[in-house]
Design a protein around this nucleic acid. Structure first.
Length: 275
DNA sequence: ATGGCATGACAATCATGA
């Protein structure tokens, strides 16, 4: 038996709801983290998702940001210890929701974009990531099995960028952002995608403009990070680019990680977490 | 240096994204 975790920046859940429902019908993922829902909580389509078999937890606002975690009722238990927002970081922007379910801590995050290196939004981005990292340091102590999924708005390495020279030092690729990403990894988290051999030019976001998707001009900025206890039972991680091909797509494609169920005993493959 | 495209709020442009 296996268990799947996914993350997808939908760029408006209102517009992308048909895509999401069709996707979940053909591919029954167990836990799905969404970002940029852009919906106030009283507008969240909980009914439609329940009709296709998912219970939802969400923290949203009108127009901007907004995060949600969907749980497949058939295979996943009830959520506990729901947290929205970062403790000790006063912020009106809805970017974080965390739950405990089936012995796992699931953290869904929409990192700030940062706009431009040196801007006020860039400073906010770095401060926000510092607050996230501080909070997770304690969460990881309390939850051996923790997954951080979301739109990180960081391309961790040059190979995560279609044109590394063009993007070098730019927003999403600056030294401070990449250092912040390594700071999260240093908590004891592994990038699930890099636990496995992957095709070159694997990306999760492509600009709507300039036929960027068709020209394979993308960035890998959406990630699934796992503690070693989960990385040990992770059997695969991939990007579902098919959703980016559809009519009126999100500019992001989902990332999916597959875990062996705890009952399988775990030791599927050795941990390859970086020190 | 700027716009390209998409979304939402709002009612013609503007903020934001990455």
């Amino acid at each position: 038996m296996s268990f799947s975790l996914a993350t997808w920046n939908v760029n408006s859940l209102k517009v992308r709801l048909p895509h999401l429902l069709a996707w979940l019908n053909t591919r029954p993922l167990d836990i799905v983290c969404l970002q940029e829902t852009k919906l106030a909580d009283d507008s969240f389509p909980a009914r439609d998702l329940l009709d296709v078999g998912y219970r939802c937890h969400f923290a949203g606002q009108k127009t901007y940001n907004g995060v949600a975690i969907l749980l497949r009722a058939e295979s996943v238990g009830n959520a506990d210890a729901v947290v929205t927002g970062l403790p000790d970081f006063d912020d009106a922007q809805k970017r974080v929701i965390a739950i405990t379910v089936d012995g796992m801590r699931i953290v869904c995050a929409y990192f700030p974009n940062g706009q431009a290196v040196g801007s006020e939004k860039y400073a906010y981005k770095l401060k926000w990531i510092t607050a996230l990292t501080q909070w997770l340091r304690n969460e990881i102590v309390q939850h051996e099995r923790l997954a951080l999924l979301g739109d990180f708005n960081i391309a961790p390495e040059p190979r995560d960028v279609h044109d590394p020279a063009l993007w070098d030092g730019q927003i999403l690729c600056s030294d401070a952002e990449r250092e912040a990403f390594r700071g999260l990894v240093a908590l004891g988290l592994g990038d699930a995608f890099r636990l496995f051999d992957q095709p070159e030019r694997s990306f999760t976001w492509w600009d709507y403009r300039d036929l960027a998707f068709r020209r394979k001009m993308g960035l890998r900025i959406d990630h699934i990070l796992l503690t070693s206890a989960l990385a040990r039972i992770c059997t695969g991680c991939s990007i579902d680019v098919e959703l980016r091909r559809k009519e009126r797509p999100s500019d992001h494609a989902p990332v999916i990680a597959t875990l062996a169920s705890a009952s399988d005993g775990g030791a599927i493959r050795p941990s390859v977490l970086q020190p």
